[in-house]
Design a protein around this nucleic acid. Structure first.
Lengths: 114, 114
DNA sequence: ATTTTATATCGTAAATATACGATTAATATT
DNA sequence: AATATTAATCGTATATTTACGATATAAAAT
């Protein structure tokens, strides 16, 4: 049980799901917001803002990085993050295309059967 | 440990994250697609399409229902699902507004510091 | 050189998610 | 009435996520 069946889906579905998963925690939404908000990429500031321990924030940053949504560079003892706009926009557009396509179908069908 | 800190974030952040979580599994993306695709709401068809056991599909349907993204009605022995467009669009628009707002900031800042 | 500061990583506990088979419940078919 | 069909729910195993403190690492300040 609990065997991973995720890979048996279409690549596009897996990618959409992965992006959604990356932003499926309020901390990660808040982090993206915080980074997008400032003109200089912040770092430990995020820890100040969030109601989470430093190590937990670091973990969330790691996941956002893994998803390619943010980038980080080390600046002295500090660590500086910014949005990776290329990936961010690409993912956002992909998700939006999914929404739009679904909506288009609904226009065509119009049959609200439930 | 593993205490739930999610409720300590802003309501808007929690809502965005919850929607993202609802669509954070390829099976659920595939289910939404399948339902949106047909003009008649399907049911056991979904089980045929997905590489998952009936009970697992049922579980995923339950989660989509919990998120308000789909609705179901019983029709004899069959169960008929359709997209709850009101919630779906509202959620999709909310997420999109988040993307747009972030992007707008990036236009303003332009400082790619990393 | 020592201490401080900033952040990543490790270890770990607890919670949640994923998946399935078995069972249940309720309608349909024979 | 007996059986078949459909889908939800239950129980359960395993995997993943979330969270923290402790520790490690590396630069900065003293």
């Amino acid at each position: 049980m609990a065997v991973n069946k995720k890979e048996e889906f279409k690549k596009s579905e897996i990618e959409l799901a992965e992006f959604a998963k990356a932003i499926s925690h309020p901390a990660r939404i808040a982090i993206l917001k915080a980074i997008a908000d400032r003109d200089v990429c912040i770092c430990g500031e995020i820890v100040e803002i969030l109601p989470l321990a430093q190590s937990t924030v670091s973990q969330h940053l790691k996941e956002l990085k893994k998803a390619g949504l943010i980038q980080g560079t080390i600046d002295g003892t500090k660590s500086c993050y910014c949005i990776n706009w290329k990936t961010f926009e690409k993912s956002a557009n992909g998700l939006n295309a999914f929404f739009e396509k679904a909506k288009a179908k609904s226009e065509a069908n119009k049959a609200d059967c439930c």
